[in-house]
């Protein structure tokens, strides 16, 4: 009885796994294809790393997943209102080990983005934490939102 129950459980685990893989099959095949909420710029999604840009009011915050890259491996450059990120991730099998599965790729990348407003290059900061690159760019005073008081006349 014990073994039969385990077999049943295994079958369901396998079916769940299959379902999950089928859900992701198009994502794996072509990253530009996305379910439900499609990206506003479908062709940009093929680039690596994929980038999210947030507006923090007085600054711009850019986030990108860069697993396996430390602060030394990423170069961030600001020039003429554009931002470039470049770097390389080398995957070398550890010494003395045989390889069963190799899914994490060797990546060499360089991306350039045009920023939506002017930023102060002196106050830009970039950090990598848990494989996520966060770049914070302070907007120039002209680009910051300014509230205009409405007066009654």
């Amino acid at each position: 009885m014990q073994s039969r129950f385990t077999d049943l459980e295994n079958t369901f685990t396998l079916m769940d796994e299959l379902r999950r893989r089928m859900d992701n099959v198009w994502d794996d095949f072509d990253p530009s294809w996305q379910r439900s909420t499609s990206s506003p710029r479908p062709f940009a999604a093929q680039a690596w790393p994929q980038v999210n840009l947030y507006d923090g009011g007085s600054n711009l915050v850019l986030k990108a997943d860069v697993p396996g890259l430390s602060d030394k491996d990423v170069t961030v450059t600001l020039q003429d209102g554009g931002l470039s990120i470049s770097g390389e991730r080398k995957i070398t099998p550890p010494e003395g080990y045989s390889t069963h599965r190799h899914e994490r790729g060797h990546i060499k990348f360089s991306r350039s983005l045009t920023l939506p407003c002017k930023v102060n290059p002196e106050q830009a900061t970039a950090c990598v934490k848990n494989g996520v690159l966060t770049i914070t760019l302070a907007k120039t005073p002209e680009a910051q939102p300014r509230q205009i008081t409405v007066r009654a006349q």
């Binding site: 992701n24 697993p67 396996g68 099998p93 080990y97 069963h100 494989g131």
Partner: peptide, 22 residues
């Protein structure tokens, strides 16, 4: 999502390496 995983083996152990940014 299923993260990409590398699997290595030597005489002493199995080594799994997975990308889980964030």
């Amino acid at each position: 999502v299923a993260p990409p995983v590398d699997v290595y083996e030597n005489g002493e152990e199995l080594l799994l390496v997975a990308d889980v940014p964030g």
